[in-house]
Design a protein around this nucleic acid. Structure first.
Length: 573
RNA sequence: GCCCUGGUGGUGUAGCUUGGAUAACACGUGGGACUGCGGAUCCCAUUCCCCGGGUUCAAAUCCCGGCCAGGGCACCA
């Protein structure tokens, strides 16, 4: 609805400006006024015109107002200083809004662009920890946001099945008799992590063992051998656990892409050869890529001295593959990957897979989540796993529910606790912009006070009210006529405006590839709903239909915005 | 050392791309409301743009120089 209002205001402004003697071609700037007394939509067009007309902005604004033909959706337009403020005719606006919101609200028109979104891609050498989960939450929320914005999104998890870390695990199993089933944890990915930790300890104590790992890598890359199924077994075991964790977090991937295929199919060799042919790859002690002309003084090693492949080279191959299959490559990486990502992008340019300086490859970098005592490490066995985090979150949520209600049965309590616990985690991460460093603290991450739970609560309240109207008063929500007498009060206006904002919020957030504005929106919307709910009687009021519809549409907006964050909206809690 | 991020009330953040009205949200703290549709509610108070220059009619926002914190600069991923 805001799209429409904005366009109408812009059109009217442009027409008004036509009567002035100047050529005004720029995009008209619009913004939201700081408070309702200054209207619902404002334009700073006077500032833009000031230079052209050689006139003070606060003199231009009244002239525009005088010349403007006001569209019906506005009640009036005023000049306040240099600003041109539009006031919505809320009675008309609200009715149009209530008509336009359906279950699909917020879904924008399809855009003919395919995005391959890579996220999580954690090494399969142990369970996901709370550092990885920031990647998943950002990635999965973005998947939901971009889909809602009309893009065709394909999400992929890049599986590092060929790295040194995996080789260490296989080496430990093959040469030192370590077995997954001997590890103490219950869950399979945790067992993998424990085994990996042990191999690390062994190598720390006796560095000569590293030679065995090298041999394992050489053999695995050398061609089909009995090692293949060992690697597959290790990777699949870990992935099995990781997938369980992701599922519980409401994170969905369309595909798991194994890096090994890029080596086996010869793509890595081909691209390496091509880089040599073009002249960017040089042979020193090892084969490396010279990127100094791009202001990267550090050479990128393409192959180990023993001929085996490296992560960076395989990643270039993967990105070539992605590039061939989509319009936009979108990666979610930790900020420690900044240099590597830039190198991959340059390699793609050199290989003419993407245009120089194109924006086909986009990377969202996020800063780390650290523990108060320092950074996490699978290798050192220092981390908080996502499984632990979820268990604790759900446990706390359950206690919270039990302390408030004794009237619902255990099974339902567990179900709701799950929704609240997982929601709290996702919300805690999604609400922050990615470049913000987080020091993890249990109480902050799992706070139910005014966090995600209060948003879910607003939704549950709406559901309860609607249910009551339907069951006790036999009201059919689908056939309600808004009363002619309905004239909106401030709480209603605020709620209507927020609901109306949703589609343009999706468009804007999708454009900047950020999900945290959605989190803020959820909170604002819940707040507006709670204020409305507190001050206005719905059932039994003389504008009952209008208000019931408003509750229903607020409920949808709340549910759909939470959905973008991967947070479920319980109807009872 | 070089490069990349961040620095906004007591705390955690949004706003910075594209400069514009009284800097937004939540927590905390202190007061208060409500016997109605669920109190995980609502209202009021409280307190902020790291420092120094510059550009501009106008700077949290742009530019330069500092300071502090995190990350990167592997034949790891």
């Amino acid at each position: 609805m805001y799209f429409k209002i904005k366009t109408e205001a812009e059109k009217a402004l442009r027409k008004a400006v036509e009567s002035f003697d100047c050529e005004f071609e720029e995009e008209i700037k619009m913004e939201f006024p700081p408070n309702p007394e200054l209207g619902d939509l404002a334009s700073t067009i006077s500032f833009q015109l000031a230079k052209l007309l050689r006139k003070a902005p606060n003199l231009i604004a009244p002239e525009i107002v005088e010349n403007i033909e006001l569209p019906e959706i506005f009640e009036r337009v005023e000049a306040t200083g240099p600003y041109v403020n539009f006031f919505i005719n809320h009675d008309i606006f609200a009715k149009q809004l209530l008509d336009s919101v359906d279950e699909d609200y917020g879904q924008l028109e399809a855009i003919d662009e395919k995005i391959i979104l890579e996220h999580t891609s954690a090494n399969p050498n142990g369970p996901l920890h709370i550092g990885h989960i920031r990647n998943s939450v950002i990635g999965d929320s973005l998947r939901r946001l971009l889909t809602k914005a009309g893009y065709n999104v394909d999400t992929q998890y890049y599986v590092n099945d060929m790295g040194r870390q995996l080789a260490m695990i296989v080496y430990g199993m093959e040469e030192h008799g370590l077995k997954l089933e001997d590890q103490p944890s219950e869950k399979i990915d945790h067992k993998v992590g424990e085994l990996y930790f042990k191999v690390n300890q062994m190598i720390n104590e006796d560095e000569s063992l590293g030679e065995g790992v090298d041999a394992t890598i050489r053999k695995y890359e050398g061609g089909p051998s009995e090692l293949d199924e060992k690697f597959e077994y290790a990777v699949n075991s870990c992935l099995e656990g990781v997938k369980e964790t992701l599922k519980r977090m409401n994170v969905k991937h369309d595909a798991f892409v194994w890096e090994g295929q890029f080596v086996r199919t010869g793509i890595v060799d081909n691209l390496t050869q091509e880089l040599i042919d073009i002249g960017y790859a040089r042979q020193g002690e090892v084969l490396y890529l010279d990127l100094s002309e791009f202001d990267i003084p550090k050479e990128l090693v393409l192959r180990r001295a023993d001929g085996t492949s490296l992560y960076s080279t395989r990643d270039i191959a993967y990105h070539i593959y992605k590039s061939k299959n989509c319009d936009i490559i979108l990666d979610i990486f930790g900020s420690d990957h900044k240099l590597a990502a830039r190198q991959v992008e340059l390699a793609l340019e050199i290989l003419e897979e993407i245009e120089p300086n194109s924006d086909k490859m986009e990377v969202i970098f996020y800063e780390f989540i650290t523990l108060p005592e320092g950074s996490m490490s699978t290798r050192r066995g220092v981390f908080i796993s996502v499984d632990e985090l979820m268990d604790e979150a759900v446990k706390r949520a359950k206690e919270e529910i039990l302390s408030r209600r004794s009237d619902i049965d255990e099974e339902l309590v567990d179900e709701i606790a799950e929704e609240i616990g997982i929601g709290a985690i996702r919300y805690y991460i999604a609400r922050l912009s990615p470049e913000k460093h987080i020091t993890f603290k249990w109480d902050e991450a799992l706070s139910f006070e005014r966090g995600c739970a209060s948003i879910q609560y607003a939704h549950a309240r709406a559901c309860k009210l609607l249910k009551k109207a339907q069951e006790e008063n036999n009201i059919d929500l689908d056939n309600l006529e808004v009363e002619e007498t309905w004239s909106l009060n401030d709480n209603e206006k605020e709620l209507v405006k927020l609901i109306a904002k949703f589609p343009s919020l999706i468009e804007d957030s999708a454009k900047i590839r950020r999900v945290h504005p959605i989190a803020q929106y959820c909170q604002d919307l819940a707040g507006a709903f709670n204020r409305f709910y507190k001050s206005e009687q719905v059932i039994g009021s003389d504008v009952e239909n209008a208000r019931l519809l408003l509750v229903e549409k607020a409920r949808i907006a709340l549910k759909n915005s939470l959905d973008i964050l991967g947070v479920s909206a319980p109807s009872i809690m």
